[in-house]
Simulated scan of single mutants.
Amino acid sequence: MEGKWFTLEEANALLPQLKEDLRQLQLLAEQIEHHNLKLQKIKVNHEQRSIAHAGQDPFFELESKLDFMQMEANLLINNFARKGVLLKMINPGLIDFPSVLEGEDILICWKEGEERITHYHGWHDGFMGRKQLPDDSR
């Protein structure tokens, strides 16, 4: 893999900023979901009434807002990649950091709610393959 490789210390040092970035992304995701549900309800009501608005798109404003929010979410998601980390899940937050342990390429991982990074897994193991980091690496 090309890209950044993290020591445990570097990953833990980056964690406070990543937690803040994640929280912003989670709030934005909630807003997108809320506005999307609102748009779907408006569309259903509009179809049921079948009122024609000559030359007007009754959904334009809300659809535009959703498009903008999605672009903002994509920017936040891309910020994780630019920092060299792998955002695996937004809610609950799950972040992996490429690393090396005893000569083996691994992913040290953090799950939302954990104070610091204490686990890792192989590249193909996923979250279910998490193992506690050896004491000498913490």
Rank of each mutant, 00 (worst) to 15 (best):
Q56H: 10
K41E: 05
L27F: 15
E30P: 00
P58V: 04
A54L: 03
L27Q: 15
R49T: 07
F60V: 03
V44Q: 02
N78R: 15
E61M: 01
Q26P: 09
I42C: 06
I32D: 02
S50N: 15
M69P: 06
Q56R: 06
K65H: 08
Q48D: 02
Q26H: 09
I51R: 13
I77L: 07
N79W: 08
L37P: 02
Q56F: 05
K43P: 03
L62S: 01
H53S: 00
D57T: 02
Q26E: 11
A29S: 15
L27W: 14
Q26D: 01
L75F: 13
I77K: 15
N36W: 15
A29Q: 13
M71R: 15
G55C: 08
I42G: 01
R49G: 09
V44I: 02
E72D: 09
N78I: 09
H35Q: 14
G55H: 01
Q31T: 14
L62H: 10
V44W: 13
L28H: 08
R49S: 06
I51C: 00
N45P: 04
S64T: 13
F80H: 11
L27D: 15
A73G: 09
I42Q: 09
N45L: 06
Q26S: 07
D57Y: 01
L62T: 02
L27I: 06
E33M: 11
L27G: 15
L39Q: 01
L62Q: 04
Q48T: 04
L62R: 02
L76Q: 01
E47V: 03
L39D: 00
A52V: 13
P58F: 02
L75H: 15
L27Y: 10
N45W: 04
F68S: 09
D67Y: 05
N36F: 12
L66V: 00
E72W: 00
L27K: 14
F59W: 01
L39V: 04
L75A: 14
E61K: 08
D57G: 13
L28Q: 08
Q26A: 06
D57V: 00
H53E: 01
E72S: 09
K43W: 07
N79D: 14
R49M: 04
E63R: 03
H35T: 10
A73T: 04
I32F: 13
L27R: 15
N79A: 08
N78T: 09
A73E: 11
Q48R: 13
S50R: 13
E72H: 10
V44S: 02
L28F: 11
A52W: 11
K65Y: 12
Q70Y: 05
I42W: 00
G55D: 08
L75I: 03
H35C: 07
H35A: 05
Q40Y: 01
F80N: 07
A52C: 05
Q56L: 12
L39H: 09
I32A: 11
F80A: 08
A54N: 02
L27H: 13
L37D: 03
I32M: 11
H34E: 13
L28W: 05
E72T: 05
I32E: 10
D67H: 08
F59S: 01
I77C: 10
R49Q: 07
Q56G: 01
A29E: 12
H46W: 06
L76T: 05
F80I: 10
K43Y: 09
N78G: 13
K65I: 06
F68P: 03
H53P: 00
Q56M: 07
